[in-house]
């Protein structure tokens, strides 16, 4: 049983994960033990922020649906979205979901080169998506100020672009760390977190596409 004395300089320090019984003999010559960093901190953090992101895009989609119900005409006359470009955008993002998982799989097996290649392809697909999204936004025959439709679609597209842009940055950082041997099969948590975030952006892209192109 532990001693009633709660703190004692003559005991061995312990990190948050370790419970050294009070009264254990101290090793005076050694510095305090380093914290044992728990695993999966970053994936959990990203998962929570992705839940917030889902609420964020959910609110925008809800605003779109509400405005659609109370505004006539919807979409404004003369607006016809190019489904071809929209479908291409979604296919690009869906492919990138596969490549980011490929990167995770490769790192788990200790194959750093293949993991780096997969992350590189993911970045390429992300940049291609952003490029095509920008092109699509330039082509649409409306602006944000002309009609509620213009505002809410512009908001969805711009904010989705920002989310994917952040994702591309995140994947690039992870690629650098994988290439620099800072991530490995034993310490893959940043790559897992990157994959979580990337899947969120894929889901958000699909939600935006379904709302604007299918539900209209």
């Amino acid at each position: 049983m532990a001693s009633p004395t709660l703190t004692s300089p003559a005991t061995t320090p312990a990190g948050p994960a370790g419970n050294t019984p009070a009264g254990a003999p101290a090793v005076a010559a050694l510095p305090p033990a380093a914290d044992e960093r728990p695993r999966n901190l970053m994936p959990m953090g990203v998962l929570l922020l992705s839940a917030s992101g889902t609420m964020f895009f959910g609110a925008l989609v809800a605003a779109y649906l509400h405005l659609r119900d109370v505004t006539e005409p919807w979409p404004p006359e003369g607006v016809k979205l190019d489904l071809y470009l929209g479908n291409l955008l979604i296919i690009t993002m869906a492919l990138s979901a596969v490549t980011v998982e490929w990167a995770c799989f490769a790192l788990r097996r200790g194959d750093r080169r293949q993991s780096s290649a997969a992350l590189g392809v993911t970045i390429g697909l992300g940049v291609a998506f952003l490029n095509l999204l920008s092109y699509t936004a330039d082509q649409v025959p409306f602006d944000a100020a002309s009609h509620p439709y213009g505002l809410v679609v512009t908001a969805l597209v711009m904010l989705l672009g920002i989310a994917v842009g952040i994702g591309v940055g995140f994947v690039t950082l992870t690629l650098l760390r994988v290439s620099g041997r800072q991530l490995s099969a034993a310490e893959p948590s940043q790559l897992r977190a990157t994959a979580c975030y990337w899947h969120f952006t894929v889901a958000a892209s699909i939600a935006v596409w379904y709302t604007v192109a299918i539900l209209k």
Partner: peptide, 10 residues
Amino acid sequence: PQNFETVPEV
């Protein structure tokens, strides 16, 4: 700074 010298058993 590190909050605890020892963490009591819980």
